[in-house]
Design a protein around this nucleic acid. Structure first.
Lengths: 171, 171
DNA sequence: CCTTGACCTTAAAGCTACTCGAAGGTTTAT
DNA sequence: ATAAACCTTCGAGTAGCTTTAAGGTCAAGG
């Protein structure tokens, strides 16, 4: 039987995140000690580990919810699981392709600034200003498209910053 | 001189997004017509295009803010720009590696379920339960992942609503 | 006994980069 | 006259946490 900090150190999931999972209904509400502290058992440990592994494999929380429900009904057919995985692999492939192309562009853009001088003459800035390297075809600044069909250019692969830094649990 | 909708169609950036950029101070507040409508000029067009190209190259909004400031002082040295790009390429490489490894794991996980039967015997579920395929080394129960560079699992794109756009990936 | 520090509690706000909705004003076309 | 297509504002929602604020509990040390 563990307190939240212990569970955290056993799974590598921060206490805050554990509470968050409880809040959104991914983890059951645990028993409480007299002082109000959460009190976990081995089943919780197992479940949290499952969740963690799923996250590590890139599943979204609502997908994990489904997986957890499936896990509770072991007689069900596992086609669903397989389908979930397949669609995941596909998404990953798309992401990989998109990132690879982005990287290619950036590297090529970087080549443009081999002489380090003023911004005014920096090839990189030039590249960012006009659409020479733009991945979206090349009809920028074209007159608005005919009324009916709206042309939506592909959006940028947005990058999210990764501002997590420490894992402060005690041993 | 354009209204917001015109600017939007010229740049491929939605009016809502333009207003958002204004709100966070990325774009200057434009003049207003008598009726209160925003009124843009060619400088705004150029700036918004710059922003758009930057986003397409994966820069975050606060980085773009920096780039825009640099753009205003053309005599500055462009080393900063180059450094920004370099760190970007590096991040991309990390993301690529992490995604590739993730994909490998998923594919391997999928192999485990060649016989489609009950969840109870599904190799995928097994794989998710114990850490056989876990990408994080195998010291679970050890004090959480290292602070520095770790691979945050990519979030699955929300499939709630789908408005043609590349799914933002995170790392 | 008192304090320090490590633990635990809660609710609420913040992060990114938008996106949507409500509730309304204006302009143009029929 | 009325509808369609623009425009306005503000606030809230998205994912998956993280941070903050404000405090309660508990064991050890002085």
């Amino acid at each position: 039987m563990y307190q939240i900090g212990k569970l955290a150190s056993l799974t590598g999931v921060q206490p805050m995140t554990i509470r968050y999972y409880e809040k959104i209904g991914l983890l059951d509400k645990p028993e409480r000690q007299e002082n109000g502290y959460r009190y976990y058992g081995d089943l919780d440990l197992e479940k949290l580990n499952f969740i963690r592994h799923c996250r590590e494999h890139g599943f979204a929380l609502d997908e994990i919810k489904i997986l957890l429900e499936l896990k509770e009904s072991p007689t069900a057919n596992c086609d669903v699981v397989d389908a979930l995985l397949e669609s995941h692999v596909q998404k990953l492939e798309e992401q990989l392709a998109s990132l690879a192309s982005l990287k290619k562009q950036l590297v090529s853009l970087r080549q443009k600034c081999r002489v380090h001088g003023s911004i005014a003459h920096c090839g990189i800035m030039m590249g960012l200003m006009n659409r020479s390297l733009c991945p979206c075809g090349e009809r920028h600044g074209a007159p608005a498209p005919p009324p009916g069909g709206e042309s939506a250019p592909p959006k940028a692969p947005s990058r999210v910053r990764d501002r997590r830094k420490k894992a402060p649990q005690s041993a």
